[in-house]
């Protein structure tokens, strides 16, 4: 499996005095971030954007969201010292605010490539569709599965189909800054593109929750591979 892009969004109950804290909260990371940007300055909904080109990552924080987007490999999302170190650090600081109440939900969206399987439209169509509507010039298709992962207690949406390279870079916004997730010459450009969305409504978010979400995602990937 090749990890192309990952988005993690943590939605928490609104922190009404967030704008009073946000610049202090992000200050430890300014030595690593480039193009730090603030929107709605001095308004309750003030939002900070921290770009980390070296980490292929953008973090954003506002009064009810903390989010991160990463291009390329994330390896272990639940490892504090891995690629998401700054994200977890900022999360810890936000959780320590007096006005922080709890999470509404956490949502992980991932785009992964499974090289070698379902790499062309015709084979994918034959495998998954018996009576496909006869529409002229069809060139792309995907399967969408939605439901609950009972073991992990997560809602999911799993969309997968043959990668249409390079058009899917734009279609799925598989790029960050000015380069695509396929920047590495060794990244395969054929295979099955899988877009998973997993959502947890737990009012806590920590490593265990992340492990659970990660495990849910891995199970979805395994189901497609098998």
């Amino acid at each position: 499996m090749v990890e192309l892009k990952t988005e993690l969004q943590l939605k928490f109950n609104t922190i009404t005095d967030f704008s009073q804290h946000v610049r202090k909260l992000v200050s430890p990371f300014l030595a690593f971030a480039e193009n730090v940007r603030f929107e709605s300055v001095n308004r309750p909904s003030e939002r900070a954007y921290l770009n980390f080109p070296e980490d292929d990552m953008i973090i954003t924080a506002d009064w009810n969201n903390l989010g991160v987007i990463v291009i390329g490999q994330t390896t272990n999302l639940d490892d504090y010292d891995n690629k998401l170190r700054f994200f977890y650090e900022l999360l810890d600081d936000i959780k320590e605010l007096d006005t922080f109440v709890g999470f509404e939900y956490s949502r992980l969206r991932t785009w992964d490539l499974l090289p070698g399987i379902y790499k062309d439209y015709e084979s994918f169509k034959e495998n998954f569709f018996i009576n496909l509507p006869n529409i002229n010039s069809t060139s792309d298709c995907a399967v969408v599965l939605e439901g609950q992962l009972d073991k992990e207690g997560l809602g999911f949406n799993c969309t997968f189909g043959p990668l249409d390279y390079p058009d899917d870079i734009e279609q799925h916004n598989l790029s960050l800054f000015n380069y695509s997730a396929f920047v590495d010459d060794e990244t395969p450009t054929e295979g099955c593109l899988v877009n998973n969305t997993l959502q947890s409504f737990s009012n806590e978010f920590d490593y265990m929750e992340m492990k659970k979400i990660q495990s849910g995602k891995n199970n979805l990937i395994k189901s497609i591979q098998s």
């Binding site: 080109p53 980490d55 292929d56 790029s175 800054f177 000015n178 695509s180 396929f182 920047v183």
Partner: peptide, 8 residues
């Protein structure tokens, strides 16, 4: 879209 970054 394709740049010359260090993609670690």
């Amino acid at each position: 879209l394709v740049g010359v970054n260090e993609n670690w």
